[in-house]
Amino acid sequence: MLPLSLLKSATGCPILIELKNGETYNAKLHSMDLWMNMSLTDAVRTSRDGNDFWHVPQLYIRGNTIKYIRVPELVLGIVEEERAARQQRRADRSNRSSGGSRRSAGGGRNRHGGRRDRRDHPQWQ
């Protein structure tokens, strides 16, 4: 499980972000990119000392100012579902293609890590 893919799966979930300056944001994750830049909605900003609170309807946070992110446990379930769905799609695809596939039946499916994803990119097909 990669950090960025976990966060990607957490899209739409409430998360807690602490910035390097100690401020925390409780918000719903709207979207994020490869730099962990995040777009949040309906955020509550808590000051560093925990005494002041602001409601921030929309917020963009630059990834490099983030210290850590708390993610709800249920995201693990989402990750598992997405993984299963991806595997299913891959199986369907290899069944559809003829036997002359450049990939052996099992070999491609059991790989792990980023390479597998990169293969999905048009450039690698």
Partner: peptide, 24 residues
């Protein structure tokens, strides 16, 4: 050097919303 961007519209200081709720 931009850390966060937020539209001012709707941005307001509020009371502690976590008094009866744990964080996340």
């Amino acid at each position: 050097s931009v850390m966060t961007i937020a539209p001012v519209d709707g941005l307001e200081q509020i009371e502690n919303p976590f008094l009866n709720k744990p964080l996340v």
